[in-house]
Design a binder for these strands. Structure first.
Ligand SMILES: [Zn+2]
Ligand SMILES: [Zn+2]
Ligand SMILES: [Zn+2]
Ligand SMILES: [Zn+2]
Lengths: 150, 150
DNA sequence: ATTGACTCTATAGTCACTATAGAGTTTAGA
DNA sequence: TCTAAACTCTATAGTGACTATAGAGTCAAT
């Protein structure tokens, strides 16, 4: 099976598959005479595993860890648990952030009644007012927003 | 006031301020003899406005729109409302996605009881199983994930 | 032989910045 | 006055997980 068929059967894009290979999430395949990648059925499962993890918002680096654990069946699964726990907590923190954000947005929206001019718009007025009792911001970090210092 | 002081007083990084200028969210300033940017007090408010919007997860392009509306006080504020509405809906959709995701993650976590080997880990087993009745994924799009076709 | 569909690599772009290099400027103290 | 520290400047590369594109090659059918 060539890459296009694999893409179609897994719902991935062709470029994503090549990207996963480059990032060592999928092992390199043999190639045809014309240098086309040739996949066997096992790749469907492997790629589906990755897709599933991505659907759970796991980062590629987390998926890489899971894959490497999958390949050491004797190890115990502390690491899996630890990662899942950390991931869940991140997701929950993000949910809390967003819900707080949502409250603020709704409050803001309520400041604007119908058909006013921008000049009198409560939304813009509120956004332009002083910011003293607001949180410091930066609470809405992305999943892997590490500060890389090397 | 030089850029460092503005940064300190607003909680922005120096680079972010320069970035906002480059992206036309902040007007260019006059410069000192040595080509340093010089800001007056009004920039504190302007930058705070931007920060506040960003704290609400508004994209820079949305902030740009708000700023340009702020500068046409006679216009009516339909556009503000429309944008806020769309933004709120995006945030709420994202919250719903994440809550569904969270349920899945918690279910997954419950499959692993204490101290098992990877081989027997319910989490990995579940992730490796077939994917038939799962959603198609790609529901967790980022804020501005437009497909630019130009 | 040619068309069209597919594939290849390499590269640039997305977003909102951060980090760095290498240069110049200003300020304080010796 | 010299110098060192602290600051600023521009320009460029990097972040994540891809998408989009260019320009070339491959393959099957006509
Ligand atoms: Zn995670
Ligand atoms: Zn209004
Ligand atoms: Zn928005
Ligand atoms: Zn387990």
């Amino acid at each position: 099976m060539k890459i296009g068929e694999l893409a179609k059967r897994t719902g991935c894009s062709v470029q994503a598959i090549r990207y996963y290979e480059k990032e060592n999430l999928l092992p390199s395949t043999r190639r045809s005479d014309g240098n086309f990648r040739l996949y066997d059925e096992s790749y469907i499962e492997q790629l589906s595993f990755i897709r599933l993890c991505r659907g759970l918002d796991l980062s590629l680096s987390e998926v890489r860890q899971l894959l490497s654990l999958k390949n050491s069946p004797g190890a115990d699964c502390d690491e899996v648990n630890y990662m899942m726990e950390a991931h869940i907590q991140q997701v929950e923190a993000r949910i809390n952030d967003l819900m707080e954000l949502n409250d603020q947005l709704r409050a803001l929206r309520s400041y604007c009644s119908d058909q006013q001019t921008v000049e009198n718009c409560g939304i813009l007025q509120s956004l332009s007012s002083s910011v003293d009792d607001r949180p410091t911001g930066d609470t809405h970090d992305r999943h892997n927003g590490a500060t890389f210092s090397g």
